[in-house]
């Protein structure tokens, strides 16, 4: 049963990722990317990371992709304004992407079966456990990330506002 869910989610995820790259209309790309993110959230639930799945949906589908949609609609991008690359660049991009895939898969296969123990610990993904780890071991990076957010927010506002002249 779990295997079938895994295969279904993987097929949805890969198909939507390919459609993100190959669809002409940028709005369709955004919608397919949201579908791919939902499939990845399903994978998180399958891996016993329930809190991360919820955060993933809220942050990506709820915030980041809405921002993408806003910008695409604000700039009025659609299939007609879509720039086209010449054929040689497309072929070379496909070849190099395929070569990267072949190299990585080949090296992973050559590395052999990874020995991992399943500790049968299904509560590592709960809010309680993650909060303990985050505020005990990663307190300083957590605080620094707030500074990162503040600087990103100020930078986005300064970049986005009209030039004063």
């Amino acid at each position: 049963m779990v295997e079938y869910i895994f295969y279904a989610l993987s097929v949805i995820c890969i198909a939507c990722a390919l459609l993100v790259v190959f669809s002409k209309n940028p709005i369709h790309s955004v919608l397919y990317l949201i579908l791919a993110f939902f499939a990845i959230a399903g994978h998180y639930v399958l891996l016993n990371a329930q809190f991360l799945a919820v955060v993933h949906i809220i942050v990506y589908a709820g915030a980041i992709m809405v921002l993408f949609l806003f910008v695409i609609m604000l700039l009025n991008l659609n299939a007609e304004t879509e720039p086209h690359k010449n054929m040689l660049t497309k072929i070379m991009a496909t070849v190099s992407g395929g070569l990267l895939l072949v190299t990585l898969v080949g090296s992973f296969r050559a590395a052999g079966q990874v020995e991992m123990v399943n500790l049968d610990n299904s509560n590592i993904g709960t809010i309680e456990n993650l909060g303990k780890v985050l505020f005990n071991d990663f307190l300083l990076p957590f605080e620094i990330s707030s500074v990162l957010f503040l600087s990103a927010m100020i930078g986005a506002v300064i970049l986005g506002k009209k030039q004063l002249s």
């Binding site: 891996l47 016993n48 990371a49 991360l52 955060v55 993933h56 942050v59 990506y60 915030a63 980041i64 921002l67 993408f68 910008v71 991992m116 123990v117 399943n118 500790l119 610990n121 590592i124 993904g125 456990n129 993650l130 780890v133 985050l134 071991d137 990663f138 990076p141 990330s145 990162l148 957010f149 600087s151 990103a152 927010m153 930078g155 986005a156 506002v157 970049l159 986005g160």
Partner: peptide, 28 residues
Amino acid sequence: AFHGDAKAQVFVFFIMIVAAAEVAVGLA
């Protein structure tokens, strides 16, 4: 999940934070 270690999931949080900041600045 395979290692039984929650620290990797905290790293995923930080990657999400960086991605959100990157998207905000990038779209601006």
